[in-house]
């Protein structure tokens, strides 16, 4: 990925978010829940993103909220990725009814609408914390990647060197670990990034409808308060714009990384469509001839 500018920019941006997740709460100029007399103030040099109806500093809320967003995204991403590898690779490698069964299971989870499912589970839980939310999202969103991995594994299984290893009587574990998995890294990575994006948006959406870590802050809770306190009707645009932009930036960074991986996996996306100003066009090969006379 040396030449992949998109992926590089995405990774740098993700790095920034990761750092903010760690140091954000310390950097925040104010305690995010702390009230003050500056009620519903537009952005100023003291309150960069303005204040809420209780005089809370929105910049601090967004900054401190990064940790919860990154935490939920990462944990849910890891849980879902591990599950998807287990289910997908097994389903692809096992022939017969076991494989079919696992594949049907992932299809069922895929078709059941994810967000409503997450909502009914999280709102039935005795308590919601960042961890439980992350687990619920992770446990319900592995199906897409499992499906992709199964298809990949199926095609790998038919490759010559895998057939040969099987004919040599190598153990299934060795074949899966050393012959199959190394060929799936890119797909697994892209699945992980995709799930993190989904988990982040889900967490924020949950918080927006009122399911969130009690007492904690994330970008969705900022939006929840903005919505429930009629920020729009009061013209307090600063209340919801920063959190939304933060989501969009994080989402774009994740998408960029995924583009990079896609281009790595699918060479047809990589062939540049114009080289040094020459437009590469299917059906009419460019002719570059320096006329001599």
């Amino acid at each position: 990925m040396r030449h992949n500018r998109k992926a590089f920019i995405g990774l740098v941006a993700l790095g920034v978010f990761a750092v903010l997740a760690v140091v954000g709460p310390w950097l925040a100029p104010f305690e995010p829940s702390m009230r003050s007399n500056a009620l519903l103030q537009p952005p100023s040099s003291e309150h960069w993103f303005g204040t809420t109806h209780l005089g809370q500093d929105i910049f601090s809320q967004v900054l401190a909220g990064t940790r919860s967003v990154v935490f939920v995204g990462a944990v849910a991403g890891i849980v879902a990725t591990v599950l998807s590898v287990l289910v997908g690779v097994t389903a692809g490698y096992l022939s017969g009814s076991a494989g079919e069964g696992l594949s049907a299971l992932s299809n069922v989870f895929l078709v059941i609408p994810a967000l409503p499912l997450i909502v009914i589970i999280t709102s039935s839980l005795p308590e919601t914390s960042n961890l439980t939310i992350a687990l619920v999202i992770g446990l319900t969103s592995w199906a897409w990647n499992a499906r992709v991995l199964r298809a990949q594994t199926l095609s790998l299984r038919r490759r010559d060197y895998v057939e040969a290893a099987r004919a040599n009587g190598e153990s299934t574990w060795r074949i899966v670990l050393f012959e199959i998995l190394p060929n799936l890294y890119a797909v697994i990575a892209s699945g992980f990034v995709g799930t993190v994006l989904f988990a982040v948006i889900s967490e924020i959406t949950l918080a927006f409808i009122g399911v969130s870590d009690a007492g904690g802050w994330n970008w969705g809770t900022v939006l929840y308060w903005a919505q429930s306190q009629q920020a729009l009707a009061q013209g307090a645009w600063w209340w919801f714009v920063p959190a939304g932009l933060a989501i969009a930036l994080l989402g774009t960074a994740l998408s960029l990384v995924n583009f990079g991986i896609d281009e790595y996996v699918n060479p047809r996306l990589r062939t540049r469509s114009s080289l040094r100003g020459v437009h590469m066009r299917v059906g009419f090969t460019p002719v570059l001839i320096k006329e001599s006379s």
């Binding site: 948006i201 959406t205 939006l223 919801f240 939304g244 989501i247 989402g251 774009t252 998408s255």
Partner: peptide, 12 residues
């Protein structure tokens, strides 16, 4: 960029 924004925020 647009596809990574939650729908509801765009509504806001």
């Amino acid at each position: 960029f647009v596809s990574s924004i939650p729908y509801f925020w765009l509504g806001l």
